[in-house]
Computed example of a mutant assay.
Amino acid sequence: MAYIVYGDFNCPYSYLASLRVDEFVRRGGSGIEWRAVEHDRRLPLTGTPSGAAQGEWARELGEIAEVSRPGEAVPEAPPPVVSNTGAAVAAYAEALTDGLADEVRREIFRAIWVDGRHVSSPYEIRRIVAELMYPQASALDHRYGPDLVMAVDAGRVASGTERRFGATVSVLGGPLTVTGQRRIERWRAEWQGLTPVVPAVVRPDGAVLPGLSGLGRLAELLPVAAPKPVVTADRELAKVT
């Protein structure tokens, strides 16, 4: 059994968990499965100004700053508007079908916590997914042949022209397929049966580590490299003599 991480795109603790999962994979690790959930499904599609809970945001961001490791760029401020992440969760659930789950998870977190984007709209989420499915092309490539078809990484995208344009969520913000819907429902039921907290890290032995304890376990999977020995002047002198 692998580690399982349940996370919410609006949650700064989940953002830090996502950074640690990416770093674990970058170092060659495997065996961590991310499952996206919504901590609060009642958030309006128009968004909620984050200033309405300024004190709570300050406390949460202060906590993740205290537990962050060197090199982990944790946010210092919340996004201006708190998004309804229903469409984001749907896009992530569908991204598993396309083999783009890690990329979609990473880019949605980046859009919210680095760029401060409001991503409640399914069209905004489609834009994020489309940018992953269609690599950026230089204008020079089409200067002399404007009718040339843009390159598509078709080997990683499930069949269907609409999906290749990022339309993996419906215009109402739900998943495009029954498979995606079932994933969302299963993830939420599993998470609610474990804890009301995000992130929630489930160890291979089934133990649940919510919140900061889960972040701590992910940090343990990333041991700090031993410091390089310091060469003193006495040691250098000994080499000479």
Rank of each mutant, 00 (worst) to 15 (best):
G166Q: 05
I112L: 07
V178T: 10
V178C: 04
A151P: 07
G173K: 00
Y144P: 03
G99H: 03
P122H: 08
A151Y: 14
Q181K: 06
L148F: 11
S121T: 12
L140N: 14
I128T: 06
T177P: 03
M133Y: 15
G155W: 05
L140V: 09
V104D: 00
E103Y: 01
S120N: 07
L176E: 03
A151M: 08
E124Q: 11
G145N: 14
T161P: 06
I184C: 01
G180F: 01
V119S: 04
M150A: 15
V114A: 12
A101Q: 10
F165Q: 08
R126A: 09
V129S: 03
D98T: 00
P175Q: 04
L148C: 09
R127N: 12
G166A: 07
R183L: 01
V171K: 09
R156V: 08
A130E: 13
L176V: 08
V149S: 08
A167H: 11
R183C: 02
L148K: 15
V157Q: 08
A167K: 08
Q181A: 11
V119M: 10
A130H: 13
L96N: 09
R105D: 05
R163V: 10
I184A: 02
Y134M: 14
R127A: 14
E124Y: 03
L140G: 07
E107T: 06
L132T: 05
R143W: 13
F165P: 02
A111F: 04
G155E: 15
L148R: 15
Y144E: 14
W113T: 07
G166Y: 05
A151F: 12
A151G: 07
G160Y: 05
G160K: 09
E131Y: 06
L96F: 10
G180A: 05
R183D: 01
